[in-house]
Design a protein around this nucleic acid. Structure first.
Lengths: 177, 177
DNA sequence: GCACAATACCTCGCCATCGAGGTATTCCGT
DNA sequence: ACGGAATACCTCGATGGCGAGGTATTGTGC
């Protein structure tokens, strides 16, 4: 998820770590902050894997900046990760939102649509949070107001997302023809 | 999050690891599956911390079962974690839903309401996923249909949750008087 | 003139998670 | 009679994330 965000931001423009951190904080920081001690090692991992390269520039204000840019391999890897996400990236909303934030980089409408269809399939699976044996419980059946809240909120999210998915898939299909 | 779920399920009734695993899978498994190699060490951690105790019973079907039950200390710890959740439990929907699933164990309506108010405060902070400098961008301002989707879905979720929070807080306040 | 915030990057050690693999038993289908 | 699925639990090594802490520079408030 973090690596995807790094690759995604750098695909648009070279950035140095400090600015990259602010970008990532804006994207997902209110929900899940990213520590520096997570970001910098992640950058090193990606650099070691040949996905990005750094150029040292004199710092505008303070210490020298390491300006990061995607290598060609890095661009290919980004597209691979966007086109063939692991199942976790589809099911976990945090991961999914990060993926959506960069899905435009995938360019090919058919490839974008294929990813959206995986999410659609996931959302259409009958799944709840609470069960009576194997039978999923609806919000109305629960006494607990907090569990009822979980189902109410999840249902609203699901409805909104299904509507958006159908609209967007329709317009991607038009674009693909 | 995993530890909270373990404590929460065991607060209701003693269970052995295998059944506990199915309960957790039902609760969060469709979004974020839990590996056995994560669950069993987590059980051991909690046991070592004195929060739960195990009693070995002959297996009903196969290997002997280790029936787990909360200790008194475990019950107190559960309530502490429910009453004073870390900020991540408030902001991250996965964590938050897990917390909500067990918040009824907190019994005191005022304590429950205090937790909901923390979530309310979080949702009311002006925060977006995408910015133009410091200015949060609305769905309408985005060209990218995928980023627009993120905002559309997040807005629907937020709306539904705010409505539910206000209703539930009102009824908790009535109960607390 | 001096502390403090912000910029900009880094290491270290701890810990939770995970996949792969292992052990043993019982039930079910063929 | 036999293999595979389900039950039930476990270890190990690799890895990613995180808090604490460190280094150095420049701009800002008092």
């Amino acid at each position: 998820m973090l690596e995807l965000a790094i690759l995604g931001f750098l695909y648009d423009a070279p950035l140095h770590g400090y600015v990259l951190r602010r970008h990532i904080a804006a994207l997902t920081g209110h929900v899940r902050p990213v520590a520096e001690s997570t970001l910098y090692p992640a950058i090193k991992r990606l650099e070691k894997a040949g996905l990005l390269a750094r150029a040292t520039e004199p710092g505008a204000v303070a210490a020298p900046r390491h300006v990061l840019r995607l290598t060609e391999e890095g661009g290919r890897e980004l597209k691979r990760r966007l086109a063939e996400p692991a199942q976790r990236e589809i099911t976990d909303e945090n991961h999914w939102f990060t993926l959506l934030a960069f899905l435009r980089h995938l360019e090919d409408p058919a490839a974008q649509a294929a990813v959206l269809r995986r999410r659609l399939a996931f959302l259409q699976e009958p799944a709840s949070f609470f069960y009576d044996g194997d039978r999923p419980l609806s919000a109305e059946e629960l006494d607990d107001p907090f569990r009822r809240g979980v189902l109410t909120i999840a249902r609203a999210t699901s409805r909104a997302e299904l509507a958006w998915l159908r609209d967007t898939l329709a317009s991607l299909d038009r674009a693909g023809r």
